[in-house]
């Protein structure tokens, strides 16, 4: 048997760097440790303590914050007795009223639909994994979460709010509302969810559950 045959008959004994294709022997990574690729330095495994518990807690916290962030006004503009408030959904409709239909759909997706979908998928997935409950669509949920990951853009929306505030200071009084504080909380929770997610552990657990 050549080297090549030996390797390809037991692919599970190896790690492969997804960035540079380096073949490594698989080894156990203790909690709170990371393994980097020796050739290209990209992160291979980042083992988290209580990864599933944390992502479930964070996803639930995010779902709770999602509602005030979307229902309460983010900014209120007042000048000469007139006032106007803004929520995320109103920025979608404002673009629609400017006849920018594609852009309005893009803002709807990246600032409302994708962030909500990510939280729902993660709450469902980590809930099922935590209670060892074989449920339908587990690998679909994980796959969709990974695909949606970079299309949720709440933190960029937040920077957009800050730029808008600065642009408007000369024109009128701008006051932040409950929506803005909830949105800040939601962004922190969303970012923490992706850092606490140990994708290798999640995929291994999904595989165990679906095999049963």
């Amino acid at each position: 048997m050549t080297d090549r045959d030996l390797a390809s008959t037991q692919p599970g004994k190896f790690w492969v760097c997804p960035e540079c294709d380096l073949l490594m022997n698989r080894r156990a990574i203790p909690n709170r440790h990371e393994a980097h690729c020796p050739r290209c330095q990209s992160l291979i495994v980042s083992s988290k303590r209580h990864s599933i518990e944390w992502t479930l807690a964070l996803a639930l916290a995010g779902l709770i914050l999602f509602f005030p962030a979307n229902l309460f006004p983010i900014l209120t503009l007042t000048t000469l007795g007139l006032s106007q408030s803004e929520t995320i959904f109103m920025s979608v409709t404002a673009l629609y009223d400017s006849h920018l239909f594609a852009v309005s759909a893009l803002v709807l997706m990246s600032a409302i639909v994708v962030p909500l979908m990510k939280l729902l998928l993660m709450a469902y997935l980590s809930g099922c994994l935590l209670f060892h409950k074989p449920a339908p669509l587990l690998s679909w949920a994980m796959r969709s979460y990974q695909q949606l990951d970079s299309w949720g853009m709440l933190e960029i929306y937040m920077l957009g709010i800050l730029v808008s505030i600065v642009k408007l200071v000369d024109v009128a009084d701008v006051t932040p509302g409950i929506g803005l504080y909830s949105l800040a909380g939601l962004i922190i929770v969303t970012l923490l969810t992706s850092t606490q997610l140990d994708r290798h552990r999640f995929w291994r657990r999904i595989e165990q559950l679906e095999r049963r």
Binding site: L75, S85, L95, D97, S98, L100, V103, I156, G160, S164
Partner: peptide, 30 residues
């Protein structure tokens, strides 16, 4: 880079004070 798109979206939503001040988006955004 989506920053400018969101700025247009936010300003178009909030600056709607009739004749006093208003913001609309234009096709360059698309």
């Amino acid at each position: 880079s989506m920053l400018d798109i969101f700025v247009v979206a936010i300003l178009a939503a909030i600056v709607q004070l009739g004749n006093l001040a208003s913001v609309t988006g234009n096709t360059g955004a698309t």
